[in-house]
Design a protein around this nucleic acid. Structure first.
Lengths: 347, 347
DNA sequence: CTGTTAGCGCCTTCAC
DNA sequence: GTGAAGGCGCTAACAG
């Protein structure tokens, strides 16, 4: 059974194709009687408008390209959900693009909206190729992965404020020697989180000790490496703030390997509140980003943009929240900043 | 600068639009001289064919809907990557659909390919609404999440065989009392894994003890609950096979809480080889599925299907591999099947 | 309120 | 080898 066209419906209903089109698009602009006739014919033929034709005629696709830095980043999962939800609710579809740190890929996905395969672009890459000036981008919304110096509509969190929140939690528990494992420095997001950590210390009249900062890369291994490095250099601390949960888990494992207990010997705070946070032992105190909300908001901005609505603001800040679990506690008064005795649990 | 059309190019080159179209589609069907002229005009105007118009005319979209059971399942991440890679390489785009266990959503995504918004459908839902007979589906490939009784082209692993592999690993280490935490029974995948576990035992002349099977749900909590249940019922074992890594991590945490060491007191094998497996302490022995390959293969089948190529086979089995890490070891000869003494690490 | 008409941008016979 | 012409299926003025 081949698709029936609007023409067939018109014939069957005894009206013109224009009337069929109208009945479907603006049912109120048509007589009760004709509406019945048309709808009846539609039912009989099983007619469904050919979206390709409709879109072609309307010069719109109702597709939006979602271009991410790395499609396999589990952090994005809830954002995917938020974006898809709002897209679905508004009749849009989401085209998945994986940038993979590759300019050519980014360019091709951007071209897809230029070529009218999609109406807009949600960018979660953190960069655009130097060869593509921002002004030449199509309708674009930036989510989460900030692009330095961009003036495009953006939804994200205040990383600096969030890092302060985490550090202040440790401070309020009484910790004074607080270490920090950063993300790759040079990335706006990592820099901001480090700044927030420093700000919190200074606000508490603690002079930041550079020895307490370890340059990580957001991966498990650098969390472990950080602990080993601190140990080798005999750097003592009772609090540890990690710029993401994965490094926090790596750090906790390494601490355990050295016979240190969390939180009795070291309190650990993560960032992102991923599944990691719940499944780690002990469950991790972490900064939660409203990931689904970020996705929803980004898509909402896109919908408004495409509808020609003026944006209330070109910058939307999503709020964060500190989720306190069992990885943080007041410092153990008996052992100040020294390294606890080594006492491996391994055989 | 608005998009230039084929007409403008034709004018500028002093030829007909048909010639322009030909030059671009079949450069060899045109004189050297005219080709030059046309390509020159194309360059000058920056002409790029309007994909919407081309697709409309050709009645193809080069879009494929990827409909998944739950978009936030981290297991899918590498599959997304595989699918996107092959799509990208073949000029296709991937539309992301989240089924969310909701018939209406599934129906709407299926309609998208009926309505010519996409050419095909990759199903990773594990079900289709009863109201939609399989025969009425558009061009479809099933990946990973099997649909019972389906005859559609499918790519997946042999779950039974994989579970045997995991269990046999424990057996070969010398374990005789091996427990199993299952997924939700009734799901084809869970059932098969449980069957594989039983098969392996029987093949080793061990009569399966029903007390050693715990009905889980693939979540962390059921891994913990299982250990508590075994403890309460005084069920002893030295090997544990979990139908996914998340439950394995939950089980390990709970074991640690009871003062049991992994692998000295209990060897644990997981399934899926997720990030969990690497970040857990100790790193988890697990069955790895070639997730990216599964994605690539599914998309390859789709491309072939849409190209009208006959499929070599309607069933493609992806191979699995056991990744041995530190969570498994030979059983401790001194303490057979009894519960080890309880000796909490908590203060 | 309804029908007629004119395309959207491109591809593809069919003559020349 | 090239051009003219006829749509693809639908929407949106514009008249009636």
């Amino acid at each position: 059974m081949t698709h029936s066209t609007i023409r067939r419906v018109a014939e069957l209903a005894g009206v013109s194709i224009a009337t069929v089109s109208r009945t479907l698009a603006h049912p109120d602009k048509v007589t009760e009687a004709t509406r019945e006739k048309v709808l009846d014919a539609v039912r009989q033929t099983g007619f469904v408008p050919n979206r390709q034709a409709v879109d072609f005629r309307r010069r719109a696709t109702n597709n939006v390209v979602l271009l991410v830095r790395d499609i396999t980043n589990p952090f994005y999962l809830e954002i995917y959900r938020g974006i898809e939800e709002l897209a679905f609710a508004n009749g849009y579809s989401v085209l998945m693009g994986d940038a993979q740190y590759d300019d050519a890929r980014v360019a091709r996905y951007i071209d897809m909206v230029r070529n009218r395969q999609a109406d807009g672009l949600i960018l979660m890459t953190g960069w655009i190729p130097a060869s593509i000036p921002e002004a030449k981008l199509p309708q674009t919304v930036i989510a989460l992965e900030l692009i330095d110096g961009s003036v495009l509509p953006t939804v994200a969190i205040d990383n600096r404020k969030a890092a302060r929140l985490a550090t202040e939690h440790l401070l309020s528990l009484g910790h004074r020697r607080i270490a920090h494992i950063t993300g790759p420095i040079g990335m706006l997001m990592s820099d901001e989180r480090h700044e927030g950590y420093l700000e919190a210390l200074r606000a508490a009249d603690i002079a930041p000790d550079p020895a307490l900062t370890y340059l990580g890369d957001y991966h498990l291994g650098s969390g472990q490496a950080a602990i080993r490095a601190f140990e080798e250099r005999r750097v003592g601390f009772t609090g540890l703030f990690c710029s993401n949960d994965e490094m926090a888990v790596g750090a906790i494992n390494a601490l355990r390997g050295l016979g240190k207990r969390v939180p009795q010997d070291v309190s650990v705070v993560g960032f992102d509140d991923m599944d990691y946070a719940l499944s780690s032992d002990p469950p991790l105190t972490s900064v939660r980003q409203p990931r689904r909300e970020i996705g929803r908001k980004a898509m909402q901005m896109m919908v408004d943009l495409l509808a020609g609505k003026p944006l209330a603001s070109r910058w939307f800040e999503a709020g964060v929240e500190l989720v306190v679990r069992q990885s943080t506690a007041p410092p153990n008064p008996s052992k100040t900043t020294d390294l606890p005795r080594t006492e491996s649990t391994k055989p």
